[in-house]
């Protein structure tokens, strides 16, 4: 099959003042595309041709190419990861497109995800949010036996549904407001359903929301584009859960004490 591609090319990194830099949509024609190719393999073919022509290849993030590492992700015809539901870009195949299709390929677009080059964006904002509380504060050592903490299957499944997040950023890219609520909600939801995670639930909810807000993501307006774009189909339930956790955590928050919390003898 044959396709016409419109791809965002940007050679310089985005800055706060100039996000788009020299970025523009560039048109490419590509012939002899096999329907069995993945979308990224199609881009590989394009890149090989570009190199032969002496043009710099299109930069795009990718690694595992089996839908789990979360590296890849481009917006295809306005939809993150393209037209198939529950699918990462690397798992999208050209059989999802018609012969002769015109395809628009753009990077995730969000202030919190500056473009590094072409289709590659910087998602370190996600990491910084996680560093502020998406964990259980347990060090390496000798915790109790794993089966000493029974977790009802239903709770374990709910935690798992949230924990499947691959951190690709499609939720932010899909959201009309570039909000990261689905991502952060998934972290809150994962831990709130586990007994181990409930110990520091209030602190976690407050810290994660504050960290998210600092990164310049937008706000949730409950349109659920994130859920529809999520390759792991994480439900917006996690956002409702985070809202609840946050309000509760704010309500029970006590003013900081000046007595200190140290307990060392």
């Amino acid at each position: 099959m044959k396709v016409t591609l419109h791809i965002w090319r940007q050679s310089r990194q985005s800055t706060k003042g100039d996000f788009a830099q020299d970025g523009r949509m560039v048109r490419y024609e590509l012939d002899h595309v096999s329907a069995d190719m993945s979308f990224l393999e199609m881009l590989d073919v394009l890149n090989e041709q570009l190199i032969h022509k002496g043009e710099e290849p299109v930069a795009f993030d990718h690694d595992c190419r089996e839908g789990i590492c979360g590296s890849c992700g481009v917006v295809i015809d306005g939809v993150p990861h393209g037209p198939e539901r529950g699918t990462t870009t690397c798992q999208l195949h050209m059989r999802s497109f018609k012969d002769g299709a015109e395809i628009w390929v753009e990077p995730w677009r969000a202030a919190a995800f500056p473009v590094v080059r072409d289709l590659v964006v910087d998602r370190s904002s996600f990491d910084r949010v996680v560093q502020k509380g998406a964990f259980i504060s347990v060090g390496t050592g000798a915790p109790q036996d794993a089966n000493a903490i029974p977790v009802p299957k239903h709770d374990a499944d709910r935690a798992f549904d949230a924990a499947t997040c691959i951190g690709c950023g499609a939720c932010v890219a899909a959201c009309k407001n570039a909000s990261a609520m689905l991502f952060v909600g998934a972290k809150v939801s994962h831990f709130m359903h586990l007994p181990q995670g409930r110990v520091e639930r209030e602190q976690r909810a407050r810290d994660l929301v504050a960290a998210m807000d600092r990164e310049g993501f937008g706000n949730c307006t409950n349109q659920y584009e994130c859920e529809a774009a999520c390759p792991k189909e994480i439900p917006v339930r996690v956002i409702a859960e985070m809202n609840r956790e946050f309000v509760r955590a704010k309500a029970v928050e006590e003013p900081a004490s000046d007595k200190g919390t140290g307990g060392h003898g």
Binding site: I136, A156, A159
Partner: peptide
């Protein structure tokens, strides 16, 4: 044990 304590949803 370590993984369960971290919240790994086995």
């Amino acid at each position: 044990d370590q993984a369960v304590a971290q919240g790994v949803p086995f």
